[in-house]
């Protein structure tokens, strides 16, 4: 556990987390590893884990009939994969594939949600870290939707 606590505390996403909160997070966390080509999760699966990337890059993909799989975002070291575990129905809406070897901290979503319900200070502290990620991804999606590099029709 001590090793995991050190890894969590040193991760940029959890920077400056108090020792008490770090212990609570680590109680739901474990180290995981995926090889290139492995799927962290697939669309429709229960969103029961959150992944905090320590090393490697993950592609978020969507498939549509006749179009194949399309990557709409990649994330890497220092970033998180998965927000759907925050909001019911806790189900993934895309595939997450390892583009290279991934080392990550996997956090049990049910466990961390329960701890946030029990300790709203922890919940607020974690929300302050997740909400900027959500906002950043919303902004990025808006820019992608504008298709700014396309020619004007």
């Amino acid at each position: 556990m001590e090793g995991l606590e050190r890894i969590v505390k040193e991760h940029v996403f959890f920077a400056d987390l108090t020792d008490d909160f770090c212990k609570l997070v680590c109680g739901c966390a474990k180290n995981v590893r995926f090889e290139a080509g492995d799927y962290l999760f697939r669309e429709g699966d229960p969103a029961d884990q959150l992944y905090v990337i320590r090393e490697g890059r993950v592609a978020m993909e969507l498939s549509a009939p006749g179009h194949g799989s399309m990557t709409f975002q990649t994330v890497g070291e220092g970033e998180i994969v998965g927000i759907s575990w925050l909001i019911p129905p806790y189900r993934w809406t895309y595939d997450a594939k390892a583009l290279e070897r991934i080392r990550a901290i996997s956090i049990d979503a049910t466990c961390i949600r329960r701890k946030c319900e029990d300790d709203h200070d922890l919940g607020y502290e974690l929300m302050k870290r997740f909400v900027p990620v959500i906002i950043e991804r919303l902004h990025a999606t808006r820019l992608q939707m504008l298709d700014v590099y396309g020619t004007k029709s």
Binding site: R57, A59, M60, E61, G68, S69, M70, T71, F72, Q73, T74, V75, K97, L99, E136, A140, L143, Q144, D147, Y149
Partner: peptide, 16 residues
């Protein structure tokens, strides 16, 4: 901004 799954580079807006 977007790519088929065969692309192994970065996907996302340049500002990120």
């Amino acid at each position: 901004d977007h790519a088929m799954a065969a692309w192994h580079g970065n996907v996302g807006v340049v500002t990120t």
